[in-house]
């Protein structure tokens, strides 16, 4: 009987510890979107399946502005209930498929709550950028 009494609070503490950091996000949006973005087909190279499972790329949107700079928006979804950190970077290519380098085109750290869906937005550095690639990597710091 005494033993049972001790197990109860211990279990409660363990459950509380396990639940910490497991809050997830509820989202609401209009069912009929006025201007749905243009979804493009994508090709994926998955070398880290665990990252793909946790932070999944849902869809890729592309738009070109008046000035000719390509804009890209990638929707990612945290499929888990845990807060996650990941890094991403956009790479831009010219019409010949050559990488365009800029001093600020590095990996950006991004945080995502459990169940949250967010947009990674990239703007081409030049009007000559015709193609892009998105790289995602788990937090390595």
């Amino acid at each position: 009987m005494k033993r049972r009494r001790k197990i109860g609070p211990t279990l409660a503490v363990l459950v509380a510890i396990a639940a910490t950091g497991c809050q997830s996000v509820n989202t609401v949006q209009p069912a009929d979107r006025v201007n749905p973005p243009r979804i493009i087909s994508d090709e994926r190279v998955i070398t880290d399946p665990s990252l793909e499972r946790r932070v999944a790329v849902v869809e890729v949107h592309e738009a070109e502005s008046e000035g000719g700079h390509l804009r890209v928006q990638v929707r990612v979804q945290n499929t888990t209930r845990r807060y996650r950190t990941f890094n991403y970077r956009f790479e831009w290519f010219d019409k010949d498929g050559i990488l365009i380098e800029t001093p600020a085109s590095g990996y950006r750290s991004r945080h995502i709550e459990g169940g949250e869906s967010l947009m990674l937005v990239g703007v081409a550095p030049t009007a000559t950028s015709k193609d892009f690639r998105l790289k995602l990597i788990e937090d390595v710091r």
Binding site: E66, Y107, V123
Partner: peptide, 23 residues
């Protein structure tokens, strides 16, 4: 160093989107 890069990246994206692209 990555904080400067992230800040600059945001500023550049914003400048291109709202000032340069918008003409």
């Amino acid at each position: 160093i990555q904080d400067y890069a992230a800040a600059a990246d945001t500023m550049i994206d914003s400048l291109i989107t709202s000032v340069i692209n918008g003409g």
